[in-house]
Amino acid sequence: MTSVNPATDLVLERVVDVPPELVWKAWTTPEHLMKWFTPAPWKTVGCEIDLKPGGKFHTVMESPEGGRFPNTGCYLEVVPNRKLVWTGALLPGYRPANLSADVPFVFTAIIEIEPDGAGTRYTATVLHSTEEGRSKHEAMGFHNGWGAALDQLVALAKSW
């Protein structure tokens, strides 16, 4: 577990009523991830996953107005059915990303998936490099957005 710095980090933790294996499947299968990853009315219209450290995690989000927002990152840690870590600061193969001025913040995400009875204790920790980045992410609706996406993940997993 990474220690959380409240000045730079955001955390969403909940217990959900689907097993860890289904949460993992939703996070690691592109066709499933595209159905839940972006809170409605936004959509995820593209996804590439190379599930290994140094592998590619790429999504394309689409706004209700049709604007497309590609995001490419690099997996840092992959522990099947338990943990995913990726960052937008690196491209696949651990290549440093060439971040432009229009990127509002860069983060590293840690998704922890732990058995909890018949369900899962789900913890998403998002590490930002600056307090400003954390504040921007929170103001964009981190808790509501990541929470809504988790609700969509759970609904999808229950349909399997």
Rank of each mutant, 00 (worst) to 15 (best):
R68H: 11
A40R: 11
V79S: 15
G66D: 03
V60Y: 13
M34Q: 14
G66K: 06
N81S: 08
W24I: 05
W42H: 10
T72P: 01
A40M: 06
M61G: 14
G67W: 13
L33G: 10
R82I: 00
L84A: 13
A40T: 12
T72M: 00
V85M: 03
P39I: 03
C74F: 00
V23K: 09
D50C: 02
R68L: 07
C74I: 02
T44E: 07
W24P: 01
E77K: 14
G46E: 11
T38W: 08
V79F: 04
M34D: 06
S63D: 09
R68K: 15
L76S: 06
F57K: 05
P41Q: 06
V85P: 01
L76G: 08
L51Y: 14
G46K: 13
R68N: 09
F69T: 03
K25N: 12
T29H: 09
T38Q: 13
P41Y: 11
G54P: 07
T29I: 01
V79P: 02
C74T: 03
E48L: 02
M61Y: 10
G46Q: 12
G46D: 14
G54H: 11
N71H: 13
G46L: 07
G54A: 04
G73N: 01
V78A: 11
P30M: 06
V45Q: 08
P80H: 08
V45W: 00
E48F: 02
N71S: 14
N81K: 12
P70A: 01
L84D: 03
N81L: 08
P39T: 05
A26W: 08
T38M: 14
L76A: 05
G73A: 04
P30D: 03
K52C: 03
P39N: 09
F37T: 12
